[in-house]
Amino acid sequence: MNTVFLVHGGLWDPMNAERFWRTPGIVAALETRGITVLAPDRPQSPDSWTEEVAVLRKLLPPEPVVVVGASNGCSAAALLAIEYPDLVQRLVLAWPATGGDPVVDERTRAGLTSRGASVAVADELLTANTLRGVRDDDLALLRIPVAVLPSVPENPPHQRKTVDTLLSLIPGSRELPGCPEPPTPHFPPHKDELAETLAAFAR
């Protein structure tokens, strides 16, 4: 049985693995399905995606894992797969945060700077093709199984167009059944279906 490495959402905010994965019951639901789960915390105030990847790389086990990125965590998850293909067996991009949207980026930039990020750091983190901090050309070179899980219903930070572009960019990628992203109030009824979907992809 494969190990699943969960990369939570959030960007320069109080979000962590406990709030994103454990409190909504996702870790427990995966474990009851026989999945070994690792759910580390991302850096809360990173200066760059390079910093995020360096921190997460140290937490990866020596054997290949299934990496599940969520929202802004999709950027770190995708970069792990691109930079360490020997350690990432499969990749799920769940509720991918929409990059390169001027309205969304301006709102996100305001949030970053209000929480203490410099303008330079905010610009670095928001630099995007389809995913923030990830080159589309690098996504197109992925040769591992990749699945994309949309936010249903879509919302401004998690737009359907991002899912469609990722599916067209990444060779052989496929779409998984979508749901609201945790830890939103609309997520709880979807917990078991999500866990079954992720477990099936990881097997």
Rank of each mutant, 00 (worst) to 15 (best):
A117V: 13
V152K: 02
R107N: 01
P96W: 07
G100I: 03
G99Q: 04
G116E: 09
D105A: 09
L139R: 06
R135L: 12
V134K: 08
V103E: 14
L112E: 02
A110C: 11
P102T: 14
T113E: 07
D164C: 12
T127H: 09
P157Y: 10
R109W: 07
L125N: 02
V163N: 12
S151M: 04
H158S: 04
L112Y: 11
V134W: 14
D138G: 00
H158E: 13
K161I: 15
D105Y: 02
G99K: 06
L126D: 03
A117M: 05
V104E: 13
R143Q: 08
D136R: 03
A97V: 09
T130Y: 09
V104H: 09
E124N: 07
D137G: 07
A140K: 14
D101V: 13
V103H: 10
L139W: 05
T98Q: 01
P96L: 05
D123M: 01
E154Q: 15
L112M: 12
T108S: 08
A122G: 02
E154H: 10
G116D: 09
V119C: 01
R160I: 07
P96D: 01
E124H: 06
A122N: 00
T98D: 00
R109F: 04
R109G: 03
A128Q: 11
S118F: 00
V103Y: 06
D101Q: 04
T130K: 10
D123R: 08
P145N: 07
V119A: 13
A117Y: 08
K161A: 15
R143F: 04
R160W: 03
H158D: 02
G100L: 02
L142V: 11
A110G: 14
G99A: 04
N129W: 05
V103N: 10
R107M: 09
V148M: 04
P150N: 03
D123H: 06
R143D: 12
G116F: 14
D137L: 08
D138P: 02
T127A: 15
L139G: 02
P156H: 07
L149V: 15
V146K: 10
A97L: 04
A120W: 00
V148D: 01
N129S: 12
V104M: 09
P157M: 10
V119S: 12
